[in-house]
């Protein structure tokens, strides 16, 4: 694929990758992956364990080294930028684990989320985040370490929301949550984030649940994209379930999942 065609593919996208390869110690886990997220779109990436989903996100925001290809944010190449540069530029990343400051209170966590804002704007933004996640307002002085799994995830999203990012990048927000809670996180919280007008790129293992809230979905296995389409297209596809239960090529290197 020539660079020009690739360029045409990502024109107008909020967040995109072009033939992205990334991994650890020079060994690619994600291989030549091209995805795009348009403004306001909810895009999900699903796939079995070890397919390279988390690594993709980490490469996107600069935690894992990009070995080949490009990362683009609002038409600008940002390959191998740093997580704080991503935060400054308007990309809010919620990691899978270690997503809140456990010893700090809920309010302090939100304040840290708004660290880059002028001090005067912080209280106003907190009010706004509490409008999006009203449940948080009842636990502002509680320590984040004492929250339940679902509350914690909500706080992590609220923390990122402080900077009013134009794109959310969420790494398995339902990991380690009970099924009912997971559905609530996906159906309510992601929708709330999306309602702010931002793009959402979400990696999930609970494929069925995340399909329900996605505009478009990529199915990854073995570090590559196996299928792509709207939820309806994928559910109709006979290959979809099979991708999860084997038959895919094995990854070439240890994964970050």
């Amino acid at each position: 694929m020539s660079a020009e065609i690739a360029g045409a593919q990502v024109r107008g996208a909020a967040l995109a990758t072009e033939l992205l390869s990334a991994g650890y110690q020079g060994r690619p886990v994600v291989q030549e992956l091209s995805i795009r997220v348009d403004p306001g779109e909810v895009v999900s990436v699903v796939g079995p364990n070890g397919s390279g989903k988390s690594t993709l996100l980490k490469a996107l925001i600069g935690v894992v080294q990009v070995l080949g290809g490009r990362v683009l944010w609002e038409g600008r190449e940002v390959t191998n930028w740093s997580p704080d540069a991503a935060a400054r530029a308007g990309v809010g990343y919620v990691p899978q684990v270690d997503d809140v400051f456990a010893p700090l209170t809920v309010k302090e966590n939100l304040e840290m989320g708004g660290y880059l804002l002028p001090v005067r704007e912080v209280p106003g933004r907190i009010t706004h985040v509490l409008d999006v996640f009203p449940q948080l307002s009842r636990m502002l002085s509680r320590r984040a370490g004492r929250l339940s799994g679902g509350e914690r995830k909500m706080l992590a999203m609220g923390r990122v929301l402080m900077l009013q990012p134009r794109a959310f990048v969420l790494d398995e927000p339902t990991a380690n949550l009970a099924p009912a809670l997971a559905n609530m996180v996906l159906e309510d919280h992601i929708r709330q984030l999306s309602a702010t007008g931002a793009s959402v790129l979400i990696v999930e293992q609970r494929a069925r649940a995340v399909l329900a809230i996605s505009d478009r979905t990529y199915v990854m296995a073995g570090g590559r994209c196996q299928l792509e389409g709207t939820p309806a297209e994928l559910i109709a596809s006979p290959d979809f379930a099979e991708t999860f239960l084997g038959g895919a090529r094995r990854p070439a290197a240890p994964t970050g999942d």
């Binding site: 990991a175 609970r206 649940a209």
Partner: peptide
Amino acid sequence: EVVEAYLVG
């Protein structure tokens, strides 16, 4: 159930 576990998590 197994297929579901993998799809649903």
